[in-house]
Write a protein that binds this DNA or RNA. Structure first.
Length: 882
DNA sequence: TGTCTCACG
DNA sequence: ACGTACGTGAGACAA
């Protein structure tokens, strides 16, 4: 059998885990986050790699041969925090329980143990995988030895063979040492050459291969300053290289035979995991006998219910009461026109299951359509729309478990009924368990299906009071009852009505695009000198950067980046590049919008029926799927033409589009109370021009188009939670320049600055931020010691109240609009929402009324200290409504 | 299934 | 020094 050694860098992974995870403690007061993170990583790698031999290497003590040589080695490193160092004994205890060999050697680092054992492994025909968070390890990569580096804390690893090292750095593994020699390593206090960072070091190595060779050819290096620096620090470079070199022949006493990975004693492992309170790991290893092995399906309580038949239904008619939980079991993910298995009902005493062939039960039809009969459901819109396709009306919904769960934590992606139930201490079999997953999905026999659906209604019934209390507790009840719940009905009506799409128009555009794409394909293949798949980033990268030798601007995990911003920088480098950009643009139109949309036109109605998802985004926005009608092209004219195919569903009608102007910046003005920003909007100025005037200190007529463009980018940045790096990327300017813009912005808009500081402080204190309608988003990483996680949370804290309040406002406008259309008995219909705009179809004689009504309702949805402004346009298609 | 790319606000 | 703009969904490719 093939021998496979896995070596883990104990110190590196444990400290990565420590900084990536919150500081977990057990009841006894043990800190365990590093141990926990290390263990999950270990188990994952064991699972994926299935090694035959296994070793964990640790550093030993402060004094190593490297400190002897260079007293400042690791000199500036912050002391290991006590909360971390206390975890190493625990980690070793856990490794012992798992029967995993660990080793440390006085005077040497874990690196050297790893370097030595892997050298021995290579000599003995092993393949080796080294797991670490330290890039230095890449120098050990070879045909037989791979390195897995942790990414994003410890949640991912990136595997390196020689090819990946080459792809990422353009270096051989051995040259990694030279890289360190030149650039140094601040965390280990290895000096390198001052002023030489990764970019310069790579450039030098691509040309001269080694540190020694660089030093021998100083005079040939471009840049006088650089030459001087290198000459002055030649010894530093030599020493740095030496320090960075991992030993392959340390005097270790551990042998390969000792690292054989053997089965462990379950009792010992259980006792250690229990002491550390690693419940999820116990479960993962199947070690907490009862829960992990017993199927949850059996754990749920049996309930009594009656299945409605032709014969017994008369007797149950008067049991349909108010309130009652209703579960409409729809067969498919996409509920438009989908089959329905059945409907179950529960009111605490009565429990009914109505197979769908009994759905024509007159008492039920009447009860469902009666708005006075209160219904509690899971996913109101799904129930309403699926029934509407069967011409069954559902009214009177006054609780929705899905929406309640979403509001209680909009960052949660899983709101399945079974999981919500579990969070509230109840058991319910998952749909996956009952129906099967993927290819195995099937409808179970009636003796399983009926009880499952009946249990769902029962679960909804039991959840309602608890969830209602939870909503009130968090101040989310108004948002829920007055906004989200009524909105579900409005959205359901919009989806059911659908949008008329002119298939012929799409066909015509498709034919034109096909011709253009064929021409472009030929030209591109000719210029490349070979035929290849232009849609494959891999093949395209090879053509551009290997064959045609264009300069590499950016790389991805898997190879060269060929994204539009990279290609735009290469546009003048080769005539093939603009053709590829055009191919990409037209290809996207063809596949996603022409072909994609045509597939979504329903036979039954000749319309497209999207689904608005009301419970996915973390900010409170809607999203749209199958198809997504919130990303129909508009920015480029060729794409915008797609909108010509979106037409009214009645002859002679019009499409009307009403969009909020700068709603997010207006909200920012209101919540920050920035005087300058408020003034700008009260004067109804062009906000980007005004920003340019203030930031660049010029008069209105001196604002150039460049200045306005840059000011616009700054405004976007402000809304997103500004960072100098992000702005520099967007504007293609240096980070320093971007930082200057931001500083100048904040000196003029001091109220905005104050808001940004305050909202972050608030988030740190409360653990969440809120919108104007009290919608809440939790930010668990806001106090993280991991810079990346924390920064992300801070930007989110700045952005969410703005984006979320905009979502609140347009949702209010939608509910109000639907009500006004009904009250005023208008024929017009709301069709779509695209975050800051609403699309309607309107008969000619209602154009004037609707134009006024829409702007009135939208502008007054929520009064702010600045006016909200709405632009209304209409035309014979969505394209013309501009 | 994950990755890349790109469409929108 | 770290490595990023905020929020989405879909199609194509390559395992």
């Amino acid at each position: 059998m093939e021998k496979k050694l896995m070596v883990l860098d104990g110190n590196s992974i444990a400290s990565r885990a420590f900084y990536a995870l919150p500081l977990l403690t057990t009841d006894e007061g043990l800190y365990t986050n590093a141990v926990y993170g290390f263990t999950t990583m270990l188990l994952r790698m064991l699972d994926e790699e299935k090694p035959t031999h296994l070793l964990v290497a640790f550093d030993a003590g402060k004094v190593t041969f490297r400190t002897e040589e260079y007293k400042d080695y690791k000199g500036k490193r912050l002391k290991t925090p006590g909360e971390l160092s206390a975890q190493f004994p625990l980690l070793k205890e856990l490794l012992n329980a798992f029967n995993i060999k660990h080793y440390e050697l006085n005077g040497y680092e874990a690196d050297d143990i790893i370097g030595t054992i892997s050298a021995q492994a290579e000599a003995n025909g092993f393949t080796t995988l080294i797991v670490s968070g330290d890039k230095d390890m890449l120098q050990l990569v070879s045909d037989k030895t791979r390195v897995a580096l942790t990414r994003k804390g410890i949640s991912e690893v990136e595997l390196y063979s020689p090819a990946e090292v080459e792809a990422k750095y353009g270096l051989t593994p051995a040259q990694i040492i030279d890289l360190k020699g030149l650039m140094g390593d601040a965390s280990d206090n290895i000096p390198g050459i001052p002023g030489v960072g990764e970019k310069t070091a790579l450039k030098l190595l691509h040309e001269f291969k080694t540190v020694e060779n660089v030093l021998d050819h100083v005079s040939e290096i471009k840049g006088k300053k650089l030459q001087e620096k290198i000459a002055a620090h030649a010894d530093d470079a030599r020493m740095s290289k030496e320090l960075a070199t991992i030993l392959r022949d340390a005097p270790i006493e551990v042998t390969l035979e000792e690292t054989v990975y053997q089965p462990y004693n379950q009792e010992k492992v259980v006792s250690v995991l229990e002491r550390f309170a690693f419940k999820s790991l116990l479960e993962r290893l199947g070690l907490n006998s009862a829960e992990a092995n017993g199927a949850p399906v059996q754990a749920q309580e049996e309930i009594d219910f009656v299945t409605i038949t032709e014969e017994n239904r008369e007797a149950w008619a008067d049991k349909l009461t108010s309130p009652m939980a209703v579960m409409v079991e729809v067969d498919a993910e996409n509920y438009h026109g989908a089959p329905i298995h059945g409907i179950s009902l529960a009111d605490g005493t009565v429990r009914l299951y109505v197979p769908f062939d009994q759905a024509g039960w007159p008492a039920l039809i009447k009860w469902m359509a009666d708005p006075e009969q209160k219904k509690w459901v899971y996913d109101a819109k799904r129930s309403q729309v699926a029934l509407a396709w069967k011409n069954i009306q559902l009214e009177g919904i006054c609780f929705d478990v899905l929406l309640a769960s979403y509001l209680s934590n909009p960052s949660e992606t899983n709101h399945r009924l079974c999981d919500v139930a579990e969070r509230y201490g109840m058991k319910l079999a998952s749909d996956d368990a009952v129906y099967g997953k993927g290819a195995k999905r099937s409808i179970p026999e009636a003796s399983i299906l009926g009880p499952h659906i009946a249990r769902k209604a029962e679960t909804i019934y039991r959840l309602r009071d608890k969830m209602d209390a939870a909503l009130k507790e968090e101040g989310l009840d108004e948002l829920f009852y007055d906004l989200e719940l009524p909105l579900a009905t409005v959205l359901g009506d919009m989806e059911t009505h659908g949008v008329r799409v002119d298939r012929q128009r799409l066909d015509e555009m498709g034919v034109e695009l096909t011709e253009k794409l064929e021409r472009l394909t030929k030209q591109i293949h000719e210029l490349a000198g070979t035929e290849f798949n232009i849609n494959s980033p891999k093949q395209l990268g090879e053509i551009l950067f290997d064959k045609l030798q264009l300069p590499v601007i950016k790389k991805t995990k898997t190879g060269y980046s060929t994204s539009a911003d990279v290609l735009e920088k290469l546009e003048s480098a080769h005539e093939i590049v603009p053709l590829i950009l055009e191919f990409r643009q037209l290809g996207k139109l063809q596949s996603t919008y022409i072909e994609g949309l045509k597939k979504e036109i329903r036979e039954e109605t000749g319309k497209i029926h999207t689904s608005f998802n009301q419970a996915v985004t973390a900010t409170g926005r809607l999203s749209s799927t199958e198809p997504n009608l919130q990303n129909i092209p508009i920015r480029l004219e060729e794409g915008r033409k797609i909108r010509e195919a979106f037409v009214p569903s009645e002859p002679g009608w019009f499409i009307m589009a009403a969009d909020y102007s700068q709603i997010e910046l207006r909200i920012l003005a209101h919540i920050s109370q920035d005087e300058n920003l408020i003034d700008a909007f009260r004067r109804d100025m062009d906000i980007h021009t005004r920003t340019a005037m203030d930031v660049f200190g010029v008069d209105e007529d001196e604002v150039t188009s460049l200045m306005r463009r840059q000011a616009k980018a700054v405004n976007f940045g402000i809304v997103y939670g500004i960072s100098d790096y992000g702005l520099s990327q967007n504007l293609n300017i240096t980070r320093k320049k971007a930082a200057e813009f931001i500083e100048r912005y904040f000196s003029v808009f001091q109220g905005v600055k104050r808001y940004m500081d305050n909202i972050i402080a608030e988030a740190k204190k409360n653990g969440y931020v809120t919108t104007m309608l009290k919608r809440r988003r939790y930010l668990p990483d806001i106090n993280s010691r991991n810079f990346n996680l924390r920064s992300f949370a801070e930007r989110t804290a700045m952005n969410t109240p703005i984006q979320g309040t905009a979502a609140d406002i347009i949702k209010l406008a939608m509910v109000n609009m639907a009500q006004r259309i009904e009250e005023e008995k208008l024929a017009s219909r709301m069709l779509l929402q695209v975050h800051d705009e609403l699309i309607f179809e309107v008969p000619e004689h209602e154009l004037e009324t609707m134009g006024k009504l829409v702007s009135e309702v939208m502008e007054n949805a929520l009064p702010l200290d600045v006016p909200l402004k709405v632009d209304v346009n209409y035309g014979k298609s969505w394209y013309e409504a501009k």
